[in-house]
Amino acid sequence: MDINPILLLAALMVASTPILLAAIGELVVERSGVLNLGVEGMMIVGAVCGYIAGHSSGNPYLGFVGAAAAGAALSLIFAVLTQFLLTNQVATGLGLTMFGLGLSSLIGQGSKGSPDLTVSKLHIPLLADIPVIGPILFQHDVMVYLSVAIVAGVWAFLKYSRAGLILRAVGENHDAAHALGYNVRAVRVLAIMFGGACAGLAGAYISLVRVPQWIDGITAGAGWIALAIVVFASWKPWRLIAGAYLFGGVTVLQLNLQAEGLKIPVEYLSMAPYLATIVVLVMIRAGRAPASLGKSFHPST
């Protein structure tokens, strides 16, 4: 066989980035006690909006900004419905996914892109020239590093900042947090919007970097994998990276194996990343979920 392990590992980071971005956003949302199953919908709306914003402005980074804004705006619908109108979070999240899939199709009709728009790879001085490690770790585009930086930021925010402590408290026991005078709704709306923005970025990474073009249904279930990985990571940021890179790694590996013409039906190879994720999910003892996860909160009670 002829697979280059260095290229494989380098591709792994790129393949994992959208899932990692979407998952870190959802992790913050769930730590605040909200279960938003609309990740897939927010991702795909981010994908189409990022694509249009990037190509119409000619600047891919403006595309990412637009995608984050679109994801946050869509999540705001979810926030208003679940936090103020007290709708069921599971049903609303599922609805958001369906709405997002349809909306993205509508927005994306006839959108044209130019082949010149590319997100340039960074070439980090010195580090990028290290043999083996350089090409794997230090020759990616800025979004790859941003996704890892967001994970680190979220970890530090939850562990060390007072705002992070309040967010965890709201997710743990919203009645107690309310009794202590914290604004449960405000905290949750902000968390949901952060989750939406991250999902938007994740979608735009697919349509601007990974594929890169716009097709209907481009996210292909990545949002659901992100949701699963949040649980598998026991709501802990660092474990999220392991989960996302495992899924991304198996995805890239099976693509390479397909290209090699391995004598296994393609369908089995396509299944592999999902199977691997499920197997790991089953094997790892999931940690404790935030105690108020998925419960509606009404301040008068």
Binding site: R162, L165, I166, R168, A169, E172, N173, D175, A176, A177, A179, L180, Y182, R288, P290, A291
Partner: peptide, 20 residues
Amino acid sequence: VFQHFSLFDALTVAENIALG
């Protein structure tokens, strides 16, 4: 001090106190 404690089970004693 509330009748039904307004505490957060998953957090430490110090974190609970800091929140108040």
